[in-house]
């Protein structure tokens, strides 16, 4: 249990067990996050960092356990939970044919969070103004990652779920990301980031290694479901 701050937790996950492709990933994982909190997911490859993010996002149903937001299970209203979340996956979710700005605009419009001002600020924060009107297909991997991050920053969602956000980023961009994370937390936002580099999430962040919650005999009641 990673208790992160004295404030009451807003997001809680209790006793989560997950299997992927008939393979146990982890069991008995719990976490809690209060407004302004940050959680770093660490650990080796295959430890389940990405899986934790997808489960918290509601993209993946756990075999067991409960995730709640302000005490209400996220499965009660998956749509409402989805709208709280800005998710950055492995892939950048950019369309090569659209410009960087159009990509972010389209994604935000689909999420019902279109705000030109917020997008302008986010593009500026990640130093993308000059690249914003180029097709995403022309950008380098690191530039594409920044566009995807700008989408997260501009979303205004209270919970950011970032899967290896720093892949391909240079030192200056990592600094910009850290500032954006600090602003987000100051405004009461929460963040869970899977990363194995020294990304500074700010003061009071906690660390969790899903691999430290192995599938043990205690969880063998689920073996049947995994056959």
């Amino acid at each position: 249990m990673a208790q992160l701050s004295p404030a009451p937790a807003r997001l809680t996950a209790t006793d989560i067990a997950v299997a992927r492709g008939g393979r146990p990933v982890f069991a008995g994982l719990s976490l809690a996050l209060a407004p302004g909190g940050a959680l770093r997911l660490a650990g080796p490859n295959g430890g389940g960092k990405s899986t934790v993010l997808r489960v918290v996002a509601g993209l993946l149903s756990p075999l067991k356990g409960r995730i709640s937001w302000d005490g209400t299970a996220i499965t009660d209203d998956p749509g409402a939970h989805a709208r709280r979340i800005a998710y950055l996956g492995h892939a950048d979710a950019l369309k090569s044919a659209l410009t960087a700005r159009e990509n972010a605009e389209a994604a935000l419009a689909v999420a019902g969070r279109a705000s030109p001002e917020a997008l302008d600020r986010a593009l500026a924060a990640l130093d993308l103004q000059r690249l914003a009107d180029l097709p995403a297909g022309w950008l380098s991997a690191g530039q594409r990652r920044r566009v995807a991050l700008a989408r997260v920053v501009a979303s205004g969602c209270p919970l950011w779920l970032l899967d290896e956000p720093t892949v391909g980023l240079d030192a200056a961009s990592v600094g910009a990301l850290e500032r954006a994370i600090a602003d987000h937390r100051t405004a009461g936002g929460m963040i869970i980031a899977a990363t194995h580099i020294a990304l500074d999430l700010g003061a009071g962040d906690a660390s969790l290694d899903p691999g430290a919650f192995p599938w043990t005999a205690a969880a063998s009641a689920f073996d049947e479901a995994l056959v």
Binding site: A57, L59, P78, G79, A80, H81, A82, R83, I85, Y87, G89, H90, A91, D92, A93, L94, K95, A107, V110, A111, G112
Partner: peptide, 18 residues
Amino acid sequence: QQDSEDGGLDQLVLSGLP
């Protein structure tokens, strides 16, 4: 297919649209 490969499908699902 393209959305599923580039991660766009996750974003569409997280729009909260049923």
